[in-house]
């Protein structure tokens, strides 16, 4: 039947840009949500996720356009393709939401996160921590005789790897910003 032969994504304004949703595979997607920076908007987004039982792996938010009062919320979430499509459609329903971008399917993108790690130790461990920090291009932003605070930027996996290495060397505290992400290329 011809109805089924329409190419997914062939039109901008119909639900045809939905991807097939039969799969049970759990995917991780990074969504960029452009919203009016008004009171309660973050609560709406978070309330949507908790109310409908969706996952949030990471969430960052900040105003990105001060004159237009627009904020960008970057959400890393997990689910089957059907759930991911639901999440995007539900986000799109929120009145102050302008646009929802799925960076995972809309072509290549870059993702970065910043983390601060406090590592305490002495002797060999301290030397080893410093050596590894150098390999990971982490900066020392605070130092005492028995501790460092490292600053590291990178994809979330790089930060995970660095934290795993620091753990046996005396990692005592960590703060992470969550993911910021942009699509590659000249389009917004």
């Amino acid at each position: 039947m011809s109805a089924l032969q329409i190419k997914k994504g062939s039109t901008k304004h119909s639900a045809y840009n939905l991807r097939p949703t039969f799969s049970d595979v759990i995917e991780t997607h990074t969504l960029a949500v452009l919203v009016d920076n008004e009171a309660g908007v973050l609560a709406r987004v978070i309330g949507l996720f908790s109310g409908r039982g969706y996952n949030i792996d990471s969430l960052t938010v900040a105003e990105v356009d001060h004159t237009g009062h627009l904020s960008r919320i970057t959400i890393v979430t997990r689910g089957t393709p059907q759930v991911i499509e639901q999440i995007k459609a539900q986000l799109g329903r929120i009145v102050p939401v302008h646009r929802v971008h799925d960076l995972t399917v809309e072509g290549p993108s870059v993702e970065r996160e910043l983390a601060l790690l406090k590592v305490s130790g002495a002797g060999d461990k301290r030397v080893e921590a410093l050596r590894l920090a150098d390999i990971f291009r982490a900066n020392v932003v605070d130092s005492t005789l028995d501790s460092f605070v490292f600053e590291i930027t990178g994809a979330p996996e790089k930060i995970d790897a660095f934290a795993d290495l620091m753990r046996p060397l005396g990692l005592i505290e960590m703060a992470r910003t969550g993911v910021a992400a942009l699509s590659r290329g000249s389009n917004s």
Partner: peptide, 24 residues
């Protein structure tokens, strides 16, 4: 059946039943 769904709310489409012809 082939299923078509006309709805003004995009989030209604494919929420419960997968449809073949979605029309927002």
């Amino acid at each position: 059946s082939i299923k078509a769904h006309i709805d003004i709310d995009p989030s209604s489409i494919n929420k419960v039943i997968h449809v073949d012809i979605p029309i927002v």
